[in-house]
Design a protein around this nucleic acid. Structure first.
Length: 520
RNA sequence: GAGACGGUAGCUCAGCUGGUAGAGCAACGGCCUUUUAAGCCGUGGGUCCUGGGUUCGAAUCCCAGCCGUCUCACCA
């Protein structure tokens, strides 16, 4: 659709006529601007910026706009390469990322978001004046538009023989040469645009992220789930045990919290009768930053009325398989360290108890709590001195077992104490009907058979809030009292899912603008 | 929040036990019409993160601060 609409307007003769008028207007504007701003009052940062500012000024004096406007392309660069037949005329736009000057001719690389193509600029093809303009005024990093015919060089590379060009945006800061790129993590994050221009892999990763999220939406939409949006600013930050960020609403003189989870609002919607809902959006947790943690992160939460944690197993497995198949075209993913993750279903399922027994000894749960502590310390696992018994086992699980689970594993039936919003198991009230889906050694998706008994829910929340009744979300509890259908619910850490699928080592590699301290 | 390591030209990096700051690429001026990290000749370019201290002399040693990286803690 995109290509068709462009080429049709481009080949229209009225448009060509209009284009000349536009060029003339640009010429007049450029002359006027050159008169009004004879010298830029911006302080040059270095010799290179100074040289470029000088070129910008000279272009304006010549009546050439260094910052053009609309430029109709015939296609994207990747399409030109793919459908490249010699002598076909193309009209392309992009950034100049490399150039090789050979005197009376030069080669450049032109890059847009779809790919890269080589340009061949020859003195005998352009006028002397135009060739000179290209040679002396087009720099690395400038955005230009070109027209010309495709041909193949002796080295076998499809190339555009440039017949005309337009400077669309004059870059006044030097762009690092592609070969050396930009490596410093801090610069890459603070100036992510440079990272995206210079590092193909980075651009690819974020493109994949976009496609992953798109495929998740498609998968859920196809199954009758509706996407909703619930508050990011909440009077009480509920749904997860995490420190919230605080903000303030002036007109209401009201402290609000950035949400730590959308859960309690999505459940209100289950009460309201939407029985398949999901939300993909940011959660904010006021805690430390690490390779796996950013203060704001993207979460999918999904609820299915009349389902339970087991229906969620089917959902997440199907979703990840669908995403991997559609976006990566494979179910075997390679990690940054070369290890492979096998996503082929069915995924392993094991209970929390069994898993711990399997890894640290059959007698783990039969020995005394003191012995457990002693053994945990022996294994090098640390925990606060007054930790309750279940936290000792959980520390062992999180420190020594979870990181080793590379292939997808459903760890089911966690202790009741550590999950306050899930239904207790009918046979064994000490555990809840939940799973944690672990992939790549990280918890990717916890899912519950959602607790819908308002009386039990109130007790459990009160217990968690250590008796602080003012921290209870009364409105949520009131909603439950009207009756919430039994439901399966699940949260999927999108950043971690994308890390897994793209083989990224750090969460900062999958978040475009992760939080950094501002530079002073 | 704690510990270890790092910050030198636009980019990537050298610079040892203290002696006036270096390379490649990029920039600028030349030469070169099928190169692709093009090549050749020449020129310019620095708050060595910041502030103190030691010293005749500090990019280098010491102290403090800023920012980052890694590990740990909190957490998903």
């Amino acid at each position: 659709m995109w290509r068709r609409s462009h080429s049709s307007s481009y080949h229209n003769t009225n448009f060509r006529h209009g284009f000349h008028i536009i060029c003339f207007v640009h010429y007049c504007v450029a002359r006027a601007l050159a008169r009004r701003y004879p010298a830029p009052d911006m302080e040059p940062i270095n010799d290179q910026t100074q040289a470029r500012l000088e070129k910008r000024r000279k272009l304006m004096e010549k009546g050439i706009a260094p910052y053009g406007g609309r430029f109709e392309t015939s296609e994207r660069i990747a399409d030109a390469r793919q459908n490249g037949t010699d002598e076909r005329e193309v009209r392309l736009a992009g950034r100049v990322t490399s150039h090789r000057d050979m005197g009376k001719s030069m080669f450049c690389d032109l890059k847009d978001s779809s790919g890269r193509i080589q340009l061949y600029v020859q003195k005998k093809v352009l006028s002397d004046e135009q060739f000179d303009l290209f040679k002396h005024f087009v720099d690395l990093g400038d955005i230009i538009g070109v027209t010309g015919k495709l041909f193949t060089t002796h080295a076998g590379e499809l190339t555009v023989r440039v017949e005309s060009f337009t400077i669309l945006s004059k870059s006044i800061r030097p762009l690092p040469k592609e070969w050396y790129g930009i490596k410093d993590t801090e610069t890459r994050i603070r100036q992510r645009y440079l990272d995206l221009i210079l590092n193909d892999k980075v651009r690819e990763t974020f493109l994949m992220r976009s496609r992953v999220i798109g495929q998740i939406r498609r998968y859920l939409d196809e199954r009758g789930f509706i996407e909703v949006e619930t508050p990011m600013m909440q009077p009480i930050a509920g749904g997860a045990a995490a420190k919230p960020f605080v903000t303030h609403h002036e007109a209401l003189d009201l402290d609000l919290f950035l949400r730590v989870a959308p859960e309690l609002y999505l459940k209100r919607l289950l009460v309201g009768g939407y029985d398949r809902v999901y939300e993909i959006n940011r959660n904010f947790r006021n805690e430390g930053i690490s390779r796996r943690h950013n203060p704001e992160f993207t979460m999918l939460e999904v609820y299915e009325a009349y389902g339970d944690y087991e229906t969620m197993m089917g959902l997440i497995q199907g979703m990840v398989v669908s995403v991997a198949t559609n976006v990566l075209d494979t179910l075997v993913v390679r990690r940054y360290d070369g290890q492979e993750i096998d996503l082929r279903p069915p995924w392993k399922r094991i209970s929390y108890h069994e898993l711990i027994e399997e890894r640290v000894g059959k007698d783990w749960f039969t020995i005394s709590p003191e012995e457990r502590k002693a053994r945990a310390i022996q294994m090098g696992v640390e925990f606060p001195p007054n930790s309750p018994d279940y936290e000792v086992s959980n520390a062992v699980y999180e420190k020594t077992i979870e990181p080793t689970l590379l292939n997808p594993t459903f760890v089911t039936h966690l202790p009741t104490e550590i999950v306050v919003l899930a239904k207790q198991n009918k046979q064994d009230a000490s555990v809840v009907d939940v799973f944690e889906c672990v992939i790549n050694g990280q918890e990717i998706a916890p899912a519950y058979s959602e607790l819908n008994d308002p009386v039990v829910q109130r007790d459990r929340l009160l217990h968690q809030a250590a008796g602080h009744a003012e921290k209870l979300d009364e409105d949520f509890l009131t909603a439950l009292e009207y009756g919430m259908p039994p439901a399966g619910g699940m949260g999927v850490g999108i950043d971690r899912l994308v890390m897994m699928l793209t083989g990224s080592e750090s969460i900062r590699d999958v978040i475009l603008f992760p939080l950094l301290r501002p530079q002073t």
